[in-house]
């Protein structure tokens, strides 16, 4: 089934992922809306984000290069005849400081797939010294997943599982 990366999945129930940290909403907000902050965690595993433009205003541009930066990933990309870096362009949607944001990605890099948009919605809930971040995705919003499948990312996820098990 939908392991075919040439088809953008269209819709279904959204995926909601929630985490709580001992930090303020401002600290979490800055990790999304500053160049240094965003680059420090976005990844995904095996990649780094070289952020060129991050204009955190409604409609503002987010432009980064997704760069393979682990030896395994670089080899995997080269073996697959893929470039080890590709540019990603996204737009900020709603931005309510320290509360809520949306990030709209234009997915135009999947071979044979017409470009389409994906939205990541983030909500921050302040519990006084602790903050819950709720990330809402829907199955149509799967740029990395499609790429990961195309690039044989399964092995990376297997490593992650090993890492989690070791903690």
């Amino acid at each position: 089934m939908p392991t075919d990366p040439s088809r953008p999945p269209a819709a279904a129930s959204p995926i909601v992922i929630e985490r709580t940290w001992a930090a303020t909403p401002r600290e979490l907000w800055d990790l999304w809306t500053t160049k240094e902050g965003f680059a420090s965690w976005w990844g995904p595993q095996g990649f780094r984000a070289d952020v060129h433009t991050l204009d955190a205003v409604p409609g503002g541009l987010l432009h980064y290069d997704m760069v393979a930066d682990s030896p395994e990933m670089i080899s995997a990309m080269q073996a697959a005849g893929q470039p080890t870096s590709h540019p990603v362009f996204a737009r900020w949607g709603e931005l309510v400081p320290c509360t809520r944001l949306t990030l709209v990605n234009t997915i135009d890099f999947l071979p044979g797939v017409p470009s389409y948009e994906s939205v990541i919605q983030v909500e921050l809930v302040d519990h006084g010294g602790r903050t819950t971040m709720r990330v809402t995705l829907s199955p149509m919003h799967v740029p990395e997943m499609s790429r990961m499948q195309a690039e044989g990312f399964e092995s990376q996820l297997t490593k992650l599982e090993a890492r989690f098990a070791a903690r």
Partner: peptide
């Protein structure tokens, strides 16, 4: 199959949010 596929995607974001937490601590 859908459930397995979604779980896979969730794993990607779980890993991403692990790094988010590490970045918070680092800052």
């Amino acid at each position: 199959e859908l459930d397995a596929w979604l779980a896979h995607y969730r794993a990607l974001w779980d890993e991403r949010l692990d790094r988010f937490g590490q970045a918070l601590l680092a800052r």
